[in-house]
Design a protein around this nucleic acid. Structure first.
Lengths: 310, 310
DNA sequence: TAAAAATACTCCATAGGTATTTTAT
DNA sequence: ATAAAATACCTATGGAGTATTTTTA
């Protein structure tokens, strides 16, 4: 029963205003008969006369008046919908759900969030801190729009763009600070994050050791804890460089760069390959690079490969 | 820029709900390609991706979500508009502006208004009491929908339907009550309403006298005044029968029926010939007849000529 | 390989144009 | 007689169908 068209309603509104088929048709940029037909059609569909046709006057009927006031509201809302789309077309806007791994979040976000807000004033940013596996899971389920994780991510349905690389540094009790820096494969008594953190896997892979190598009776749940444990003489650990300023300030530890083959990680952004907002996502990635450059110690910004702008 | 159609929005809503082109197309009772094309069209017109197409999943984009919530509001409003029309289709509803001449209003309206409200619960009744010429003027200007006046009305652009006829009675000072009732053409010292009232013209016409005949130094502005003047011995007058109970109760006058050729008037309803709500207007007329029959002394109900139901 | 969306094409409904008639003043 | 809306008729756009291809998991 509601099969009138917006076009008909616009014609109706014009006629209600002009009170004259000829002028209203002109306003609508159509011919007078075309307008007549559409108005007639609308009247048939409503089942009520909308206009009273006098010889030299076209007037709304009582019903037409009521109808018109509702039609105006409807049309303005339709206009608003169009304007809303047009406005959103220009800039990234709306909800943006970003996941970040725990070994990046505390060091990057303080610089990133304000910069994102500055670049995309109409964004509604929702952040989620979790381990890679979980973030990937939520991405695939459509509960996140993008995530900042360590590359590579083995998931064919996700696309990625590299953001920045950084080295790992060795964290030892301050007392050992004078000792020569061992090669990473020679580390003893290494303290690691608990199972599931990518940093744990990365550190282990650099050491060329099996998972059983580390002191898994003392896995830490955060880098802060880990550093505190090092300060207490329970062992050594590695830290991504961006974490150094924040985590070692209050601890009785010393940080040293590795020599030779320096271990490190690459942080990138990943999102569903099917997400159609590639343009916008790459804009976000660019802002993340900028934030990393300005606020993260030792982050070497990486640039997206050409062709990714597709 | 706002040239999407309601149809497209309905398809969009279905797809947003079903998250599947095939099922959504089924819901819309169209083929899957038809839906695809319209969604694509909508996306082009908004200039933004609305859906994220996965292999086994169709999801709204962030923008799509926002868009959808607005679209739902718009569609519900469109549905309401249709429902509003459907509801009004059944019964007379909306504003109804009725004019009534002063020599009818006080006697008819107390009975009429409740009956109109009872028959048309959704009517918004607006009443206007004025002299015939003015009512006709306002009718022609579209500021009234109908008027109750004395027939005939010489105005080709108006249609009329008769409602009821009634006699005039002679009103004399009570002291003269015993005198024989004169023929109406023999009246002396007749008091009349002021210029412009149709009752004045009618009375004069029955008397076969020129306009100068009456005591125009004493024209009354209402029937009440006139009757009071008669009671004070200033002359005599005629009253339509419906006015007798109300007007003569408190006055020192007596009422007598004329003999021989009894003067009277016919009250009818008039409206613009172009008014498309003839059906409804005739319904209203019927209610007026009913009200006159039950509440107006001596009103002889007249019935509309056949063919008027057009 | 299978499921699903996009594309290609064809057809038909209908919106809109021009010419004309009807209507009402 | 004139101004204006309705009607008639024609054309062309575009919505929707079927068949097919493309895509991705």
């Amino acid at each position: 029963m509601t099969n009138f068209t917006l076009k008909q309603l616009r014609y109706f509104e014009a006629l209600a205003e002009q009170q004259h088929f000829g002028r209203a048709a002109e306003v609508c940029a159509i011919s007078q008969p075309a307008l007549s037909v559409q108005i007639k059609e609308l009247e048939q569909q409503t089942g009520k006369a909308l206009f009273e046709r006098g010889a030299r006057q076209v007037r709304l009927t009582a019903f037409g008046e009521d109808f018109a006031s509702r039609v105006r509201i409807l049309l303005r809302q339709a206009d608003d919908l169009g304007a809303f789309a047009a406005a959103s077309r220009e800039r990234l806007a709306g909800r943006f759900r970003l996941g970040v791994i725990p070994t990046v979040a505390p060091y990057l976000l303080p610089g990133l969030v304000p910069q994102l807000s500055a670049h995309f004033p109409d964004i509604e940013l929702r952040l989620r801190e979790s381990q890679t596996a979980r973030l990937v899971e939520e991405l695939l389920q459509g509960r996140l729009d993008a995530a900042l994780v360590a590359l590579p991510v083995e998931e064919t349905s996700l696309t990625e763009t590299p953001l920045f690389a950084e080295d790992f540094v060795l964290v030892r009790p301050r007392a050992e600070g004078a000792h020569p820096v061992p090669h990473i494969t020679e580390l003893r008594n290494m303290l690691l994050l608990e199972e599931g953190h990518c940093l744990r896997d990365q550190a282990l892979s650099f050491c060329n050791r099996p998972a059983g190598f580390a002191r898994d009776d003392l896995d830490g749940s955060s880098l802060s804890t880990l550093v505190q444990m090092v300060g207490a003489g329970l062992g050594v650990t590695v830290l991504p460089e961006m974490a150094v300023p924040l985590e070692t300030r209050m601890a009785d530890v010393t940080c040293s760069a590795f020599r030779g083959s320096v271990p490190g990680r690459t942080i990138g952004m990943v999102w569903r390959r099917t997400n159609p907002m590639t343009q916008e996502l790459l804009q976000v990635a660019q802002v993340v690079r900028e934030a990393a450059r300005t606020t993260c110690n030792g982050a070497r910004v990486l640039h997206s490969r050409s062709g990714e702008t597709l």
